[in-house]
């Protein structure tokens, strides 16, 4: 059994490497959802946006040979799809949760429909950064093969945390999300701010989708996403609407997803499917942990319907 040469260390390194590799879509979707929820709306359709981003990014890369252009197009497709959500929710008496679920189904359906011709052709992948050059261990080397998108997501989390506190836009977004009365008294255009928050969130989720199809696992098929877009919503609650905590939480969810494959590579093949379900258990655990009949959800934007 050569996989066990490093023993449990090997499992740990594989989980860390997997966490980094798998966490990026969680990170982008949760940052996007944070932006949307900070504006006072919930977009449950980000799962659909993610899949749509994956498809459109892949298709662009196949057609043009430019994976980075694919990332950009994925973001734009996500923004466009979220714009539908934003506009529909701006109508009076429309429930954002219901629209989100509709968008989820619509987005995935549309992606499968338009993406049929792209299942077979292979697209150029996004490049790697080798951050493991200092080590001779192939395990560490492969664990530290990192996509620039991951680093970009990390920088984006830091930037958003800063921007929410230190820019006028950040203050406006938080005001609108926390108290529409206050926003009205200050003369802000609530609808416009919410549309902007939702569209920006959709762009990020779309980019997260392109990572799935253009980097890891790096193909396009209908089983590509396993609910990351939905789990990211739970993740945002767990991270208490804080971009930097979203980053940590994404690593945690990424690690949980990587647990099954890591154990398998270490030779533990029993209960593979059980370990594969780790992220779903984690989602449940997180939701139970953050729910309390006595305490209010700390940090929740006041206008968001899940916290009311």
């Amino acid at each position: 059994m050569e996989g066990t040469e490093l023993g449990w260390w090997g499992v740990l390194i594989a989980v860390i490497g997997g966490a980094i590799r798998v966490s990026t879509p969680y990170l982008f979707v949760s940052l996007g959802e944070t932006l949307t929820e900070k504006s006072g709306r919930v977009n449950l359709g980000l799962e659909g946006v993610l899949v749509m981003g994956a498809m459109s990014g892949y298709a662009t890369a196949v057609l043009t040979g430019q994976p980075w252009l694919g990332v950009l197009v994925a973001g734009c497709a996500g923004a466009l799809l979220s714009l539908v959500h934003a506009l529909v929710c701006s109508l009076p008496r429309v429930n954002d949760i219901a629209v989100g679920i509709a968008l989820f189904i619509f987005g995935t359906g549309l992606a499968f429909f338009l993406g049929k011709p792209f299942i077979n052709p292979s697209a150029p992948r996004l490049p790697d950064l080798d951050l493991g050059w200092w080590s001779d261990s192939p395990h560490i080397q492969s664990a530290l093969q990192i996509s620039p998108l991951f680093l970009f997501g990390f920088a984006l989390a830091l930037f958003l945390a800063w921007a929410l506190k230190n820019t006028r836009w950040g203050l406006v977004l938080r005001t609108v999300g926390d108290s529409s009365e206050a926003a009205q008294a200050l003369g802000y255009n609530i609808t416009l701010v919410r549309i902007a928050g939702t569209v920006a969130g959709g762009f990020l989720a779309g980019v997260g989708g392109s990572y799935l199809s253009l980097y890891f696992p790096g193909t396009w098929n209908e089983g590509l996403s396993s609910g990351q877009g939905l789990m990211a919503v739970a993740l945002v609650i767990f991270a208490r609407w804080d971009p930097v905590r979203c980053f940590y939480a994404s690593l945690l969810f990424g690690g949980a997803t990587a647990l099954g494959p890591a154990l398998q590579s270490a030779g533990v093949t029993a209960n593979y499917y059980l370990y594969g379900a780790a992220p779903y258990f984690l989602t449940l655990a997180v939701l139970i942990y953050s729910a309390s009949p006595r305490k209010a959800l700390e940090g929740a934007p006041g206008e968001v319907s899940i916290s009311r």
Binding site: L171, R174, T175, D178, S179, E181, A182, Q184, A185, L186, G187, G299, P301, G302
Partner: peptide
């Protein structure tokens, strides 16, 4: 206003600077 129009998740300073 008769009802408060402060943003409760923000600090005093942020509320003052608002607008």
């Amino acid at each position: 206003y008769q009802h408060f129009t402060l943003v409760s998740s923000m600090t005093v300073a942020e509320n003052l600077v608002q607008g």
